[in-house]
C-alpha cells in the first residue's frame, strides 16, 4: 500500500532540550496508528510539526509524495486535528464555529457534521464557552471529521470523554474513518483503548520511534516469562529482545519481544525448576518498552 505520510529524521529542540532526536516512520491510508509515549516525550510536538504549527529543526515530512514546507498551507486541507485540549473561540456558537471551520475545507461534509452533532448530542445553538470539556472534545472531533481528512491526528483527546462516548468515538468514528481510507494517528495515554481500534503501534521514547510494528504482530510476539529456581536465581543471559528483567531470590520475571524459538531455548538453558510464559496486554507491552531503562534500538516492520 502506498504511503500517505512519511517522516524522515525529524528533530526538534526547545532551547537546549532535545525533544525529538531522529524520528522516522510512515503512515498508510485506512489504518489506525496507535501512537504511544510517556509524558513529555514529544507526541504533541510531533503532531504540531506535522500540522505546520511549529517548524522542525531538521528532517523531512512528505505528504502524498510532496515534501511539506513549514509555511505551506494547502496540504492541511487533507489533515484533521483534534488537540489534547480543545481550544476554540469561546464566544462562538457551535453552529457558527462549525461554519467558520468548514470554510477552510473544500471537502467539508455539512450533512455528516449535522448527523455527528446530533449523534454526539451537541447543541448547535450553544456557546462554546458554556460547553463541558467533553462537549468541546466532541466539537473538535466533529470539526476534524467534517473535513473528510485523509489523515486525522488525534492528540490524546479522549481522556475527557465519558465511557459511552469514548466507546462510540473509537468504534463508531475512528474505525469508520479508517474504513473510509483515512489514516489515523492516535496519540493517547489510555493505552487499553487502542486495543479496540489500532492496526499499528508506534512508540516514541528518547526522541526516537522505538517500536513501529503491526499491532497484532506486537501482541503476538510479546511475552512475559516467569522462572523459578532452586536456590538463587542465575544471572539473566544476554537475550536479544529483553525489555524488562526483575530478579529476586529464586525467581526471575522478564518481558521479551519478540518471542521466538531461539529466545525460548536461551531461557530454557537457565534450567529453571518452573517456567511460565504468558501473552501481554497492550498496556503491559507499553510499560515493558518504556517502563525503565534507556531507549532501545528501533524495531521496524
Amino acid at each position: 500500500m502506498s504511503e500517505l505520510l512519511k517522516v524522515r529524521g525529524l528533530g526538534k529542540s526547545f532551547g537546549r532540550k532535545r525533544v525529538l532526536e531522529d524520528v522516522s516512520f510512515a503512515l498508510e491510508p485506512g489504518r489506525v496508528y496507535g501512537f504511544l509515549g510517556r509524558n513529555g516525550e514529544g507526541k504533541t510536538t510531533l503532531a504540531r510539526i506535522l500540522l505546520g504549527v511549529i517548524p522542525a529543526d531538521r528532517g523531512e515530512v512528505v505528504f502524498k509524495g510532496e515534501p511539506i514546507r513549514f509555511k505551506a498551507a494547502a496540504y492541511k486541507r487533507e489533515i484533521g486535528y483534534i488537540p489534547e485540549d480543545s481550544f476554540f473561540y469561546g464566544w462562538m456558537k457551535v453552529r457558527e464555529f462549525l461554519r467558520f471551520n468548514g470554510s477552510f475545507y473544500p471537502k467539508w461534509d455539512a450533512d455528516r457534521v449535522r448527523v455527528l452533532c446530533s449523534n454526539l448530542g451537541l447543541d448547535p445553538k450553544a456557546r462554546i464557552r458554556t460547553l463541558s470539556r467533553g462537549e468541546k472534545l466532541k466539537l473538535g472531533l466533529v470539526a476534524a471529521v467534517g473535513a473528510a481528512p485523509d489523515l486525522l491526528i488525534l492528540d490524546d483527546p479522549t481522556s475527557g470523554l465519558d465511557v459511552p462516548t469514548r466507546h462510540d468515538f473509537l468504534r463508531g468514528v475512528i474505525r469508520d474513518l479508517a474504513d473510509r481510507g483515512t489514516a489515523v494517528l492516535f496519540a493517547t495515554h489510555m493505552v487499553h483503548e487502542l486495543e479496540r481500534v489500532a492496526d499499528h503501534l508506534l512508540i516514541l521514547q528518547g526522541g526516537r520511534i522505538i517500536l513501529d510494528r503491526r499491532f497484532d504482530e506486537v501482541k503476538a510476539s510479546a511475552r512475559r516469562v516467569r522462572l523459578w529456581f532452586d536456590g538463587g536465581a542465575p544471572e539473566w543471559p544476554r537475550i536479544e529482545g529483553t525489555l524488562f528483567v526483575e530478579s529476586e531470590a529464586g525467581r526471575i520475571e522478564a518481558v521479551v519481544y519478540p518471542w521466538n524459538g531461539a529466545v525460548e531455548d536461551g531461557i530454557k538453558g537457565l534450567a529453571p525448576t518452573r517456567m511460565e510464559v504468558e501473552t501481554l496486554s497492550l498496556e503491559e507491552i507499553f510499560v515493558g518498552f518504556v517502563g525503565s531503562g534507556p531507549a532501545r534500538p528501533v524495531a521496524r516492520s
Binding site: 504549527v53 509555511k71 492541511k76 489533515i79 481550544f87 473561540y89 471551520n101 475545507y105
Partner: peptide, 21 residues
C-alpha cells in the same frame, strides 16, 4: 489576545490557511 487567552493559536495555525493570510 483571544488566540493566546483561549490557546486557540494551535487551532488556528493548523487550519489550511497561510500564516501570512
Amino acid at each position: 489576545i483571544v488566540e493566546f487567552k483561549d490557546g486557540a493559536w494551535a487551532y488556528l495555525f493548523s487550519r489550511p490557511v497561510k500564516k501570512a493570510v
